[in-house]
Nucleic acid binder design. Structure first.
Length: 465
RNA sequence: GGCGGGGUAGCCAAGUGGUAAGGCCGGGCUCUGCAAAAGCCCUAUGCGUGGGUUCAAUUCCCACCCCCGCCUCCA
């Protein structure tokens, strides 16, 4: 659905500025997002980033583009190996389980499944080929232990994305002891030689048994599925350095091409003003949110709208309650106009067109959803007013379709359980007799179940609360 | 130390050189048997602090104070 014709502007980390977005081969947009490392349940901070990628894809569609998206699963690294060992499971089995949980959570949050979701372990051959190319061109070298390292000194642009000076890369506390094998501290592993801790995990390579380094998987898979040059590469801000910096170095050195044209990064989240950490006990999963009586739609709305994607978002339960209330208001509006006869929706309405124009203009400004939502709520109030007055309405079904193609809220979950249906009919009977006392006590009973009942000209209406 | 992000009403948040969108919460009114929903009205002479530029600054400049992130494998 192409509803937006304005030029789309996106903030490119490469230039640190907003740029007008033009894909390489319109209307196709080839997009790569760094996916999760599947060693445990993903937390809501992870999902903020995936929600951002989802928003981007949805906006691209609304602007007439045809995004083709790829998101990888990192299913082999120190953490996955350690987790498999701890669970006494084969690596493959452990990662399969967490991928399953992750995809369930995506569904809960109405995140569109990326078109392709390649696993690192299914593409070892591609990675080996890429490493061989880098070796051939002198951008990599084999260490004494059979590990292969990328030589950052061979790539003059190293550090451009992160705005880091190569000379400023000093050995830090986190440098492992085996790092003396490298020519320079900034050099990073393309291939890691097998160690005892790796157990069963390992693949044969020209340099002996081992496994790929982290960065190389994204280079290999993104270029394999999207080409040596593609449109957008995104992920969380933390990935700018070193992950994306290293991806750029590997990919450009291997191919001589420019790799991704746009780099988009989503800022991190805090919980109650503090960084999420296991010790603070503030690392929440989607399941934790659902357990508190919220739905995926509430969390989606909060994570998407509480702050612009390049702004730190502070998660609080109070904020989630506010998001729930806002979603409830949208739902009420939705249910309200949907009950109206079709002739109430005027075919031509400048009101509707004006709203969509504003909505698009906001999104075109680097996905300014807060601003876009401001327009939406003004529109919502205006249409509610029209309904009150019995005035003609814009083509709400069509406008909502465009709107929700971005918001992704979908339908409220208001299927009435049978036992409530029973209370409802008893209440209807009581109301017939004008037995207000009975009517009110039944309303209280229904409220106990987490629903609210309202009396309209058409009879009773139930809403989940 | 280097690089970067931020401080706007009770909470969240957009934004602009010309006098502060929107959401949540709260209050009043209309409607209702009562509610709910909806609508209307109210809720920052003010945008971290102090200077400066300007006819005019929250928006530009300077200084200062706070908060946060990254700087080798964390979305």
């Amino acid at each position: 659905m192409t509803r937006c014709r304005t030029p789309l502007h996106l903030f490119n980390t490469l230039s640190r500025s907003r740029e007008e977005f033009h894909p390489i081969a319109p209307p196709k947009v080839r997009l790569y997002a760094c996916g999760p490392t599947v060693y445990g349940r993903a937390h809501i901070g992870n999902f903020r980033t995936f929600l951002f990628v989802d928003l981007l894809r949805r906006v691209l569609r609304l602007f007439g583009f045809e995004p083709e998206s790829v998101m990888n699963y990192t299913d082999v690294d120190d953490k996955t190996i350690a987790a498999a060992e701890a669970a006494s499971l084969p690596l493959r089995e452990l990662t399969r389980r967490y991928i399953e949980l992750f995809e369930e959570d995506l569904q809960t949050l109405h995140i569109l499944l990326p078109d392709r979701r390649p696993k690192a372990t299914d593409h070892i051959g591609l990675m080996i080929a890429l490493i061989e190319e880098l070796l051939r061109k002198g951008h990599a070298y084999v260490g004494e232990d059979g590990s292969v390292y990328f030589r950052i000194g061979s790539f003059p642009d190293y550090g451009k994305l992160a705005h880091l000076d190569r000379g400023g890369l000093q050995p830090g506390a986190r440098i492992a002891q085996d790092e003396y094998l490298k020519e320079s501290v900034g050099d990073f592993a393309l291939w890691k030689a097998w160690k005892a801790e790796d157990g069963e995990v390992g693949w044969a390579s020209p340099w002996g048994r081992g496994r790929p380094g982290w960065h190389v998987e994204c280079s290999a898979m993104s270029m394999h599925y999207l080409g040596e040059e593609f449109d957008i590469h995104c992920g969380g801000t933390d990935l700018i350095f070193p992950h994306h910096e290293n991806e750029i170095a590997q990919s450009r050195c291997a191919t001589g091409k420019s790799f991704a044209h746009f780099w988009l990064h989503c800022s991190h989240m805090l919980v109650d003003g503090e960084k999420m950490s296991k010790s603070l006990g503030n690392v929440y999963s989607v399941a934790d949110i659902l357990a508190q009586g919220y739905t995926g739609r509430h969390l989606r709305f909060l994570l998407l709208t509480a702050a612009h994607y390049r702004q730190t978002l502070n998660f609080t339960w109070e904020g989630l309650a506010a998001a729930k209330a806002a979603v409830g208001r949208i739902d009420d509006w939705l249910v309200r106009w949907r009950s109206l006869p079709p002739e109430r929706f005027a075919a031509a309405s400048s009101e509707g067109e004006e709203f969509l124009t504003r909505f698009c203009a906001s999104l075109a400004d680097d996905l300014n959803l807060s601003d876009a939502l401001g327009h939406f709520f003004e529109f919502l109030r205006a249409t509610n007013r029209s309904i009150d007055l019995g005035a003609p309405l814009p083509d709400l079904p069509e406008i909502w379709c465009a709107l929700d193609s971005v918001l992704g809220l979908g339908e409220p979950d208001d299927t009435v359980p049978p036992h409530l249906q029973e209370l409802l009919s008893r209440r209807a009977a009581a109301r017939q007799r004008r037995d207000w006392k009975e009517s009110d006590s039944l309303r209280a009973a229904i409220k106990q179940e987490g629903w609210s009942v309202r009396d309209t000209a058409q009879g009773q209406e139930l809403r989940r609360r």
